[in-house]
């Protein structure tokens, strides 16, 4: 149970659930939640490699810390964009934002 492939599997599953949510949710915030899931899956993946394969296990943790920091920054900006979009089209349904329809 405590092998690399288990954790990689968990990470892949988290990532894929995030993909599913991203492609299927109708509201922007729902997509944002799915993106958080994807980021977490990637973090777990990094930490797994760090635990089992990396020569210096500190590096992986530093990297994961930075991923979390960037996720936070990205969430801030995404939320502000969502608020801006909402003020424009008065809904957070992504299917309403079809200006690029050709």
């Amino acid at each position: 149970m405590n092998s690399l492939t288990t954790y990689l599997f968990i990470a892949a599953a988290l990532f894929v659930i995030g993909v599913f949510g991203l492609l299927q949710r109708r509201s922007l915030i729902g997509m944002l939640i799915a993106i958080e899931l994807m980021l977490n899956g990637a973090s777990v993946n990094f930490m797994a490699f760090n635990r089992f394969l990396a020569p210096d296990p500190i590096i992986g943790q530093v990297y994961t810390l930075f991923i979390m920091g960037f996720a936070a920054a990205e969430t801030i900006i995404a939320l502000s964009i969502i608020i801006a979009v909402f003020r424009r089209i008065h809904s957070i349904n992504i299917e309403q934002a079809r200006n690029l329809r050709g």
């Binding site: 968990i10 777990v44 930490m47 760090n50 994961t64």
Partner: peptide, 10 residues
């Protein structure tokens, strides 16, 4: 899971 992966800090 991070705990199991050996990094309580993370």
């Amino acid at each position: 899971i991070f705990l199991y992966l050996g990094s309580p800090f993370i």
